[in-house]
Design a protein around this nucleic acid. Sequence first.
DNA 1: ACTCTGCATAGAGGA
Length: 987
Amino acid sequence: VADSPDVILKNGLNNRYRVLEVSVRQRNGSDPEKHLTITASPSLEDTELCILRNGWESVPVVPGDIVHLEGECSSGTWVISAQSGYLVLYPDLLLSGTTISSSIRCMRRAVLSERFRDSELGSPQMLIGTILHDIFQQAVTNDLTQEKVQELANKIVYGQKYLKEMYLLNLKQAQIMQEIEEYLPSFFKWAEDFMHNPANQNKMQLKLSNGGKTEDVSSKIEVVDILDIEENIWSPRFGLKGKIDVTARVKIHCQSGVQSRVMPLELKSGKESNSIEHRSQVILYTLMSLEQRVDPEAGFLLYLKTGTMYPVAGARMDRRELMKLRNHVAFYLTHSTYKSDVGRQNSQLAALPPVIDDSQTCKYCSQMHNCFLYSRAVEQKMASVAFPPALVPVIDRETQHLKPSHLEYFSLWYLMLTLELQSGEHKKGYKNIWMTPSLEREKAGDCVGNVIRVGEVHEVSEGQYLHCFQRRNGAIPGTNLLVGDRVVVSGEEKGLLGLATGYVREVSATKVSCLLGRNLSNFPKNTVFRLDHDEGDVGTGVPFKNLSKLMKDCPVSERLRNLIIDFQKPLFIQHLSSVLPPEAKETVANILKGLNKPQKQAMKQVLLSKDYTLIVGMPGTGKTTTICALVRILSACGFSVLLTSFTHTAVDNVLLKLAKFKVGFLRLGRAQKVHPDIQKHTEEEICRSRSIKSVTDLEEVYNSQPVVATSCMGVNHPIFAQKQFDFCIVDEASQISQLVCLGPLFCSKRFVLVGDHQQLPPLVLNTEARDLGMSESLFKRLEQNQNAVVQLTVQYRMNSKIMSLSNMLVYEGKLECGSEKVSNATVNLPNLKKLKLDLGDASKTWLKEVLDPDTPVCFLNTEKAGCKPSDIGIISPYRHQLKTITDLMAKWKESRVEVNTVDKYQGRDKSIIIVSFVRNSTDENLGSLLKDWRRLNVAITRAKHKLVMVGCVPSLCCYPPLEKLLCHLQSQAMISFFSIIHKCNIL
DNA sequence: ACTCTGCATAGAGGA
């Protein structure tokens, strides 16, 4: 935490102070105080003092922390006390209203829920609650008459919107409608009691300040206008976020006259408890509202079952206690790991907030499993953590199905995931939206600011609004925003953060259009917006969820634990006859005809497997063809198949091939991410074209195809909670993080991983996590069970010379060419003769040599030439190099040549590949990129006919993989020297 | 000593 370079310090509305020193002052007799030496200057010079008293001294603040202060500051001294001021710890970590209110009862649960976000399954009551919210919100903004509300309820319950959830919970629409109808009379009662109406006689106690003095009297409350529903507020002042069910203009008639205020209404469909949790939520909304408007001082709790409305005052005392609670939760979330002061600087997992000793509460807790798991695997080893004695046997009993190896796996992966999460937050995070002006952020290309909305807003489908934005003056600046990227729309003005989120639909020189989740047409025409690229915190929830699931006490998880953690030997049956139905024999035989020997072997191995098979797909060995054939064979045998990969593109690559055969499949995942030719197989498209409107129909769609395809992250889909597949195939498996790869395996009896661990591994940002082994894919881990491995060694991409490099480097000669044709293929250069004439000049003989089709592999040594490596290239390990090359190519108006990183080229090929290795110095600072055998292997196995590598031989010999390659090239006389080159205008 | 894919979200109630 101490020296994060990207911390922005400043004063003002979103002031950010760094805490330099913390001291506790105990004056005799009086309460203790905490004195903080703080600074808002980046040089850390101008310091101020912050005094915490009346309970604020309990805030767990330490030197190095970033805080936001609210309240009075006089002559460089802030006082945060019972009466005034707030200290907000880590204010850029926005916590939701529900997280904080749930932490009142159990902070441990609140913290666990942030990590294991999706572990809570949901219940019928929750779904009914969501639907009731929707109906009420729409009704209150349009029409609250009986007829209209009934119509609306029908439209929503019998519409498409909640079908998935109903399917997941096994509920029928009629059941839901029955429950909903019981609520509707209360809607009208509420409207009669509180909507603007002279006959309205309601009276309630409401405490509001009025010109300095506080009145505590009965007031008549009238809702005069609904300003917004589901208003999203991000408050970097208080470190809070949340969505307000209903934002209303309310008239309060009291003795001293009429007041008008904009206030939050919180809807509840459950028991009319008026509980502290419910009230706290409202109080937090009153605080968040300060971000946008004057203090509402109070809000309302509206219980939909009875139509009763309770006023909730946002009293100073309650706000203060809730903010302290928020600081504690923020502390635990930020300090989830620590480095011990003694010994090596290894990160360790910290204790969670203590377990509460309340069996009544724990009995119903949705985080119980994770709570006990963490106690057993992590905390029981800590001397500092004491458990309530009665709980120890409970924890042991609930985790007794886990072996020590499982607990170790859990704590190691929990640590690695946490470290990686922290790295991700550092790099991404939303805080730039409020801490960095759009103009500055535009330079990095992650933002387009200063735009206004133009044209009409179109509701493309339910809850999807197409907006168009134009720069206020001039063209849209150069940006990295691409079609399909996620964006956050905010107002440039303070307080209008995160107004909507959505996707980029189109980017041109003059406008950006986005599909947003909210309609922004109610904002004044002249509102100035900014669009920020939303990198979000994707992929953090899924692995935590899968880790938790792997530790469950159920047969599926137990089997996976045995196979994956304990390396139980995968089993195979003896004879194909027992799996191959007689009627499928001919079809299977026909499919096999089109395959080579190792591919056939792979098919056989999969069919015989009882647990899993690993298919090593070396470069160009026809992985897609093999997977396609495998799916065809499996479905011919009557098996159901779940087909997944890390990326949507890879899933669609197989599907595009599969679509040519008579194999039906269902494609899940966001239609926008799916290949146009596959669109018609997506759930979205099928439901639209067949206008699916009932749970039964949806179920039919889900069960209609024996093959289901989606990305590994997409396995949160409700279908996977209900269906079991016979086989699961995971493509690109060597590039998928272990726990992400695990997701689809929970719903399948057997699995097949396809990959090549000699190519690039999963990306891990955090170096410590990487050192702990986080980049080990499941494919790599299981590869030690050699009996489950089949290798595809016959390749159809590279000619023999190019292939030989990789064979020498990593594959130990196992790769072979699929045919003579492949082996001898050379590049076709129709204009070569003409070009050669032009190159008559003797100084350009090197170029002749390089271009000669009979020289498939060539390494250009730039040592003597002294030319800048940046003059030539197509693939490079470095982004900067690519930028230089792209700029040069643009100058020559050449945009057809694809310039990209090695990493991005994985999985693809071209006829000619030029690799620019860039480095031209022999100093000690070696980059780590070129030390990776796998990256080099990827780089040299992309070319089919001609591979030209450019680099400085002595410089590159410092890297072991390149040294081995260059040695080989030298022995084969494949290295040339540049003559004098100033310009290169080939291609 | 620089390589980068994934994805909706806070809150829906229950004690």
